[in-house]
């Protein structure tokens, strides 16, 4: 198997997994929605700060 075929196979598998788990199965109660939203905000801010730090370090 060549490197290109292997990479293509891996990416195809990643795509297949992404499609398989596209829809979250957890019951979207208000608590779940709030928790996931808060988590997104938290990570967005933290990743933003990491990026800022990285840029200012350059």
């Amino acid at each position: 198997m060549t490197e290109t075929t292997r990479k293509a196979g891996f990416l195809a598998k990643v795509g297949e997994i992404t499609r398989k788990y596209k829809t979250p199965r957890i019951k979207a109660t208000p608590a779940v929605k709030v928790a996931l939203l808060a988590l997104r905000v938290y990570l967005f801010v933290l990743v933003g700060l990491l990026a800022y730090k990285f840029v200012t370090l350059l």
Partner: peptide
């Protein structure tokens, strides 16, 4: 995590 929260949170 993949199953319950979907692929975005799964890959993350």
């Amino acid at each position: 995590i993949f199953d319950a929260f979907g692929s975005f949170w799964g890959w993350f």
